[in-house]
Amino acid sequence: MKRDVHVVIDETLCTGCGACVDICPHDTLTLADGKATVTGDDSLSCGHCLAVCPTHAITLTGYRPMHLGYQTFETPKGWLSPGAFDVGTLVQLMASRRSCRHYTPDPVPMQVLEDLVKIGTTAPSGTNAQLWNFTLLPDRPSVEGFAEGILSFFKKLNRLARIAPLRGLLKVLGKPELSAYYTDYHDRIEEGIASWETLRWDRLFHGAPAAILVSCARDASCPAEDALLASNQILLAAHAMGLGTCLVGFAVEALSNDKNLRNLAQLPADETVYAVIAIGHPDEPYRRPSVRKPITPRVVNIGRVP
């Protein structure tokens, strides 16, 4: 996919050091008459040239610096070089983030949600396409309305799953998904629907006052990876802000199969939602990080000469 060039070079500031030319992954720049020059007609707009320039001679039109423009906090100036941040503190943050299933009724300010979206876009994306998008459900009524749409989908699915001949026929035809759903999820979903309708007990969003839907255009080179990497940035940043989060997988499944729910969320036809994040102020008494299964990575020595 050919993309426009947004690189602008100020010749009065350029010293001709060639650093931008050497680091450009797309051969967009060359040195001419002792100055960096845009000679290619295609660019990833990755900003490597801007980041490496010692004299601030390079800008990218239509783009904003990743570390600027936040409304609820300020970031230190400058770039953290590899090794310049304490890895122990980083791991402590990652290990301390937990899925939150109890929230206070306090709202999440719109400015905070908008900042979390901007933080999400600090994630890498395949070929720097940045074709992700973020849909905000900014208050509890919006979350409840969305939850109603999800439950409507699962009511229909449960009615189908209870038809034993249909499950059997599909299984014979090599489509065992409905049978597996009936075994693994039907009863749990039925309980959740009853809890919502009789007690208003929210087993989907757990009372969260806001949510973020993370989607990506289907023609992106790595749409799922792009959206999920951005989602993880949001999860970690939310914890640092004092907020709790929880990924709602049932919402993603419903959005993948229900056009009415997609219309309710006003999603464009060319986008797929890969993560739905419940978010709010946590009301949980965690005191320490949890645990993970031990893992031994596979070591593969490819091409090693004995």
Rank of each mutant, 00 (worst) to 15 (best):
H6V: 04
E11D: 12
T12H: 04
A19S: 10
I23L: 06
I23M: 08
C24N: 06
L31K: 09
D33F: 07
K35T: 15
T37M: 04
V38Y: 05
G40W: 10
D42M: 09
S43I: 06
G47M: 13
G47P: 07
L50A: 02
L50F: 05
C53Q: 05
C53R: 05
I58G: 03
T59L: 01
L60A: 10
G62D: 08
R64N: 13
R64W: 02
L68T: 14
Y70V: 02
Q71K: 12
F73A: 08
E74V: 03
P76R: 14
P76S: 11
A84P: 01
G88T: 10
G88H: 11
G88M: 06
L90T: 13
L90A: 14
S96E: 07
R98K: 14
R101P: 03
T104V: 15
V108M: 12
Q111F: 00
D115R: 05
V117P: 06
K118W: 00
I119H: 00
T122G: 02
A123I: 06
L131V: 03
W132Q: 15
N133P: 00
F134D: 08
L137N: 04
P138L: 05
P141Q: 06
G145N: 13
E148P: 00
G149L: 07
I150H: 03
L151K: 04
F154Y: 15
K156H: 13
A164N: 11
G168K: 12
G168D: 14
L169W: 01
L173Q: 09
K175R: 15
A180H: 13
T183L: 06
T183P: 00
S195L: 14
E197I: 07
L199E: 14
D202G: 02
R203V: 07
F205Y: 15
G207K: 10
P209A: 09
I212K: 10
S215R: 07
C216M: 05
A220H: 04
P223F: 07
A224T: 14
A224I: 08
E225R: 15
S231F: 13
S231D: 01
L235Y: 14
M241E: 05
T245D: 09
T245L: 06
C246V: 14
V248M: 02
G249K: 04
V252G: 07
N257K: 11
D258P: 01
R262A: 10
T272W: 01
V273C: 06
Y274W: 11
I277W: 09
I279T: 02
H281T: 15
E284H: 04
R287V: 13
R288V: 04
R288A: 13
S290G: 06
R292H: 14
P294F: 05
P294W: 04
T296L: 09
N301T: 02
N301L: 12
I302N: 01
V305C: 01
P306K: 10
